[in-house]
Design a protein around this nucleic acid. Structure first.
Lengths: 228, 228
DNA sequence: GCAAAAGTGTTACAATTACACCCATGC
DNA sequence: GCATGGGTGTAATTGTAACACTTTTGC
């Protein structure tokens, strides 16, 4: 099939790293110093190494921007191939979705900052639309997988988790129903610990946690399935 | 970021083209003539052209194996990057999922044939696991999108559609409930035409169709959403 | 009339939403 | 006691599965 030497292309990896903070969904961006798109905000990433897998490459590049140990989940999103997506020349790009718990406090380099996903500043290349892809993927998976573990702290109250889900989904979520749905599916479990009330008082809240901190599909799409 | 010239890699596109025939889910494979993996079955595809997008490339390569006009739906699946996935040297591969209606009868070249997805012959490279990815994606999307249009003929009876869904999902589906679910979501609509009974007799069946033959999400994951 | 397949009516069941109400704490 | 959230009980709603029964044809 490959009679002649096949053409080769530079390949980069990018990451849409999301977290919830102050009730908003945020994405990690760094400010470009040089042309093209000087002073615009861009996704972290970089070139794929000669003997590297894509997943390893994105972890390596992210290490320059954040403490990778803070990234609780990482999955492949999509590969972009528009020949004109980089004005300097053709570069293929595979984007990943990364998720950081809301209580993580990674120290960031000078040029790097979190930005609210709603109302992004001007972005470089096709990175703005990749952020949208990442947000959509996270929103969908919150409803049928355990990906919430990556967004939440190790231990949390239901109101904290409600605020996290609300911000990530972009609409109000009821703590009452969230608790019941997640408990029934065994996505979260209650611990013996209770948290003290906040300044404004109120009953102390029970502390919950995700029993397994890895991705698992909980809601096999029920349509057209025998009840078993 | 790219101070030195970045490394370049050969990039190929592959397609997992699925259809339902004789009550089984089938994938399009071609038999390799040369090493490596001589005589093994492989996914159609080929190199990415210098100024080409991935989607265009896979359509071009597929044209060698099938009449591309028969492919009712095509979407990106995932990108594989294991440096050893091709023993001849490193090749990145982006796989697509293609879907062909069950009544299409594309003529195939000598080396190409449909194979039941259950019980595949030995395959080349990592193509076997890509077929699994494709099957999983199709199965999930059948439940929450209109992707069924790509699998079904333009017009069909409910029993035909039931057989198609059963084969693609790998479990029994009730025509009664399938009809109601798809009608309520306006995924299918009834036409004025009735089909004559088969040889074994029986009441003539109403003919249905998919009103829009493009992908649409029908079942926004309902979890945690206000009823609005 | 009878067999076969299609289609409808109806009930059962499961999951979720909405909301009223009770609980536990600080002040 | 009362304000403030946390949490439970429960009814309403929705969507799907299961299945009996009716309809429409060929022979």
């Amino acid at each position: 099939m490959l009679d002649v030497a096949p053409p080769k292309y530079p390949h980069e990896v990018l990451a849409v790293v999301l977290r919830v903070r102050d009730g908003r969904l945020e994405v990690l961006l760094w400010r470009r110093a040089e042309k093209p798109y000087a002073a615009r905000w861009a996704l972290p990433g970089g070139a794929l190494g000669a003997h590297e897998r894509l997943g390893t490459a994105i972890a390596r590049h992210l290490a320059d921007k954040v403490d990778v140990r803070e990234i609780a989940h990482l999955e492949q999103l999509e590969t972009r191939s528009d020949p004109r997506r980089d004005p300097r020349g053709r570069v293929l790009a595979t984007a990943y979705l990364g998720v950081v718990p809301s209580d993580a406090e990674p120290s960031l380099p000078q040029d790097t900052a979190w930005h609210a996903v709603d109302g992004l500043p001007p972005t470089a290349f096709d990175h703005g639309s990749l952020v949208e892809s990442g947000r959509a993927r996270l929103g969908a998976k919150l409803s049928y997988t355990t990906i919430g573990f990556a967004l939440a702290p190790k231990a949390f109250t239901m109101s904290q988790l409600r605020d996290i889900y609300s911000a990530a989904l972009g609409h109000q979520v009821s703590a009452t129903n969230l608790q019941r749905v997640l408990l029934r599916r065994h996505v979260i479990e209650r611990t013996d610990i209770t948290a003290p009330p906040t300044e404004s008082g109120g009953r102390p809240a029970a502390v919950y946690r995700f029993p397994d901190r890895s991705l698992r599909v909980t809601d096999e799409f029920p349509a057209f399935r025998p009840r078993s």
